[in-house]
Write a protein that binds this DNA or RNA. Structure first.
Lengths: 188, 188
DNA sequence: CGGGAATAGTTGACACATCATCCACGTTCG
DNA sequence: CGAACGTGGATGATGTGTCAACTATTCCCG
């Protein structure tokens, strides 16, 4: 009824085409299984989780082995509160330690402990092996390249333009309602 | 020291090659962002979660709109306890309802309610639109095919052979220690 | 200098996933 | 029949992620 009057007010749904449908379902299931398997394997081979691992990688990648909390959040694309909770738990297990920042009274550092270092050193080889066995042993060079290109395209789409607005929570705390921009897809 | 004595007991770690490294990091970040974005978008556009959506899809795909709990678990590759908890929450919100199975006193069905049906019908179009915008608008046919083939390869690897043993929790409850098979990678 | 805004980080409540355990029912076989 | 074992499913404890406040500091600008 009112469709004719406001043709663009209620656009016909763009469903996925059959080929896309198949690709999407394959991707979704693969991704779910792969995540589950990597997590499980990580906690079998070591006593840290994938999340712990990610944090520890950032710390070991830093010369000082100390990183500001929001720095961590930005790099991992996590929310600051997630970092805060997670670091608290890791601290309780002795993997990291918090330290106050002298140059900025609000800030604090997350610092790698010896125990944290040995934990990641113990976990890394098995994890690499797992990734090889589950992924790269199955793919030839062109597939590796395709995986990378596809991933980069989607990632870029997600972190630029309108999508980035939502992520902006990470940088600015209160995006002031993030005006949805009426017309749909302005594209940066 | 003992490496020379037992050469295969402590194999040199297979790290990822640079190209693989890049592809892997791209994939991991993309996948994380994409999941986050899909979930967020789903709860903005409707009042159900991705998990709810997955369950409701299964129910609507069934002629009877009723599915046995473990059937659901197997299809979604979830654990039975996850299903159980989740269905409990969904029931509390009126999206589904439990019903006893007359032919098997232990079993129970999960049944779609009218409210559940309208919830998924309301959510589906926006979700399809999101997937199109974030994924398929960016990929040409060959990339869609590549995505599917890569996903299927990895998924197959994950659900057959030694890996499947761990998943077996889903079918058999107590795999009796799942003997790790000494030698590493026997391959089914 | 003083006072509001932005920034860094924490906290608590809640939703969710996992694990181990438990119970009710069914199957099998003596 | 009835004991032993397998199966379908529920439950509670615990760890983790998200959201919405909240605190404390610093920045900005008159």
């Amino acid at each position: 009824m009112m469709c004719q009057l406001f043709p663009y007010a209620e656009p016909v749904t763009r469903w996925l085409e059959p080929e896309q449908q198949r690709a999407w379902r394959a991707y979704v299931r693969m991704q779910g299984e792969l995540n589950a398997h990597l997590s499980r394997q990580m906690s079998v081979d070591s006593d840290i989780s994938m999340a712990d691992f990610a944090v520890l990688v950032q710390l070991t990648d830093t010369p000082d082995e100390r990183v500001r909390v929001l720095e961590l959040a930005r790099y991992l694309h996590w929310e600051k509160s997630r970092i805060s909770h997670h670091v608290a738990r890791m601290e309780k297990r002795g993997l990291v330690r918090r330290e106050n920042c002298r140059s900025d009274g609000r800030g604090s550092f997350v610092v790698l402990t010896d125990q944290g270092r040995s934990a990641i050193e113990a976990a890394a080889p098995a994890h690499a092996e797992t990734v090889n066995k589950l992924v790269f042993d199955l793919l030839d060079d062109s597939e590796v390249q395709a995986l990378r290109e596809i991933s980069e395209k989607i990632f870029t789409r997600l972190t630029t333009g309108e999508c980035a607005a939502v992520i902006a929570r990470c940088d600015a705390d209160d995006p002031m309602e993030v005006v949805p921009e009426e017309g749909g897809c302005p594209e940066a």
